[in-house]
Nucleic acid binder design. Structure first.
Length: 582
RNA sequence: GCCGAUGUAGUUCAGUGGUAGAACACGUUCUUGGUAAGAACGAGGCCGAGAGUUCAAUUCUCUCCAUCGGCUCCA
């Protein structure tokens, strides 16, 4: 039997058990998911479910499983179904939405559920100790914020107790990769309430990694003919009205700053006469459009590529903030490509290729690709949206990339291709985004002169290949469990003298590394070698160089590799040559 | 923003209706050593904030704030 089917059947058993213990409960939906299943319930206001009740429900489920309950499928008319589920408002809603004349139900002993299946034949097929109820959470009915919030019970299930235990153990291991915990231990970044929510500070060691990533980006993009820009963090209200953000992106923006007076005057309650409003930028595009418009452009200049490590601010709901991966102030590796309509498919293709090759350079080979289509709030005509979406589809097909469609997930100005990377607990984070835009060129009256000397409107592509420095760093830490590759390690080498007599020699070695552009650190504290090694291992430093009497006599160094241990004695300059290749 | 849980030293956590402890980190001293924690001593806390109950609240109740797990939304 397929494990998915068992999981789905367990969802029914869960609902059965809950119904037995809480007869008043209203049932939502209960599908199988990756590694398990869930079921949504509405409990009466007086008698809600507490986390400690989960074990009771679990016991009840085990009891039911042992009863060898059969799953019997039956097809009945919609009217019959309506009668059958008359006390279940959520089920009635589902029945109403079904277009077929008949609906299928599954009868398991005293429990009946609306379900198209498939299911197991008998609970004998379930391993009673192969599943576990894991957590309780709130979830909107049908995933819509406007609907009531139901109580969701999550469970995880496998074919055997061994598989379940392995999974639970792997989860505990995965939690140790959490970038929030490692970021603290490795002194990479700091998030502090008083500084502000979702506004991380990059500590010296984190800043070094960021610089290494930025240097990489600078090289990569300059090679591809990008031109670098710097633009301000705030822009006048007028600018954002022109761009359309004022109307279409207001949910994600902070309210305006009133300029025309200073803080002191404002604190004294003085009403400013000059009413000037400025907004923190949520995107860099309007500025880039202005750079484009700063002179007349010819078709011969296109495509033009403007890149910026642009720091933007977005209002994110408090409940969504998450370490470095979801913050309110962040720096995108942003760029805007302006091209002729004809150049568009080729430029998008190049971008997707470039994104994938860059992700590979950072060790990411697993990701999911999404095509996000027109959202509820959008600018432009349906026809243009359709054409743009088709272009993106064409590129994905041409590159033979598997993708999913995220219906309604596009930005207000156009559809997009996103690449999402999973964190240690397999939550997906959108990093790469390549966005088609046929709206801003019109709003900012962008143009180029074509072959016939006539003005024409260009197309624009917004894209961030790593996404944001913050989020990318977060998933990067998790993917390596903190043990970053040599070129990204904040400290690449720890030089450890065995005793006080060896400090001078250690210092000279350390200086040689620094001279060669290697991030070396000297640990000359009065501690044992073991202790220093331990500290360096916790800091995930790739190489430790231990020097004592023997090494001084030979003029050599002894190398220890992170997680591997002692690698033996070698000559300093050979070693430098070797690691510079990494 | 919504549902649930949590909030004690720089960090990870114990603990109690009579205002607090451990380990690590930090400081001083001793020790001088060879591949994941040498020893002693010391400094450190408005027990998240506000209100209520009580003779007395870090502990009980409520509200707020933040964090964590989900949902929704997003780079």
């Amino acid at each position: 039997m397929k494990i998915e089917t068992i999981r789905h059947s367990l969802a029914h058993i869960l609902a059965y058990a809950v119904k037995e213990l809480y007869p008043e409960v209203k049932l939502g939906m209960g599908p199988d998911i990756e590694n398990g299943f869930y079921y949504d319930f509405e409990f009466s206001k007086k008698k809600s479910l507490k986390p400690e009740d989960l074990s009771r429900v679990e016991e009840k489920m085990k009891e039911l499983i042992k009863r060898d309950i059969k799953f019997v499928k039956k097809t009945i008319s919609k009217n019959e179904a309506k009668k059958l589920f008359k006390d279940q408002p959520y089920k009635l809603e589902l029945i109403k939405e079904l277009t077929d004349k008949n609906v299928s139900i599954y009868i398991s002993d005293g429990f009946i559920d609306l379900c198209k299946g498939p299911h197991i034949k008998n609970t004998k097929e379930i391993s009673p100790d192969g599943f576990k109820l894991t957590k309780l959470a709130g979830a909107y009915w049908k995933g819509d914020e406007e609907n009531t919030m139901l109580t969701r019970i999550y469970g995880t299930a496998f074919n055997s107790k061994k598989e379940l235990d392995d999974y639970l153990l792997a989860q505990i291991e995965a939690e140790k990769r959490d970038h929030r915990m490692l970021g603290q231990k490795m002194e990479l970044f700091l998030i502090n309430e008083e500084i502000g929510l979702g506004l991380p500070l990059w500590l010296p060691k984190g800043a070094v990694v960021r610089k290494a990533i930025e240097d990489y980006l600078y090289k990569e993009l300059t090679k591809e003919d990008y031109q670098w820009l710097y633009t301000p963090h705030i822009g006048s209200r007028k600018l954002w009205e022109t761009s359309g953000h004022w109307n279409f992106y207001n949910e994600n923006m902070y309210p305006p700053l009133e300029i025309g007076q200073n803080l002191e005057e404002s604190q004294k309650g003085k009403v400013s006469e000059i009413k000037e409003e400025y907004l923190l930028k949520p995107m860099n595009c309007p500025f880039h459009a202005y750079v484009y418009n700063s002179k007349i452009r010819s078709y011969k200049d296109l495509p033009i590529k403007f890149a910026e490590l642009g720091t933007v601010y977005r209002y994110e709901k408090s409940g969504t903030l998450h370490g470095l991966t979801r913050v309110r102030g962040f720096t995108q590796d942003d760029a805007h490509l302006i091209c002729t309509p004809k150049q568009m498919p080729e430029e998008i293709e190049k971008l997707v290729r470039h994104a994938l090759s860059m992700l590979k350079d950072f060790g990411f080979e697993e990701y999911n690709i999404y095509l996000s289509t027109r959202p509820k709030k959008y600018a432009g005509t349906l026809k243009k949206w359709e054409k743009a979406t088709d272009t993106l589809k064409y590129v994905l097909r041409k590159l033979k990339l598997k993708y999913e469609t995220d219906a309604g997930g596009g930005v207000f100005y156009g559809p997009k291709i996103d690449i999402k990377i999973k964190d240690s607990l397999s939550r997906e984070w959108q990093c790469t985004t390549i966005q088609f835009d046929f709206n801003l060129p019109e709003k900012f009256k962008m143009s180029y002169v074509n072959e016939r000397g006539k003005k024409e409107e260009p197309y624009m592509i917004h894209r961030a290949l790593l996404g944001s420095m913050e989020r990318f760093f977060g998933v990067l830490i998790e993917s390596y469990a903190g043990a970053l590759p040599f070129w990204l390690s904040p400290v690449q080498i720890e030089v450890i003298p065995v005793g006080a007599d060896h400090i001078k020699y250690a210092e000279s070695i350390h200086e040689e590394f620094i001279k060669s552009g290697i991030r070396s650190e000297l640990n000359d504290k009065k501690e044992t070698v073991s202790k220093k090694i331990r500290e360096a291992e916790i800091q995930k430093i790739p190489y430790m160089i231990v020097v004592g009497d023997k090494e001084i006599k030979e003029g050599s160094i002894r190398i220890r590799e992170r997680e591997k241990g002692d690698m033996g004695i070698t000559e300093l300059h050979d070693f430098i040559k070797r690691i510079k290749m990494e």
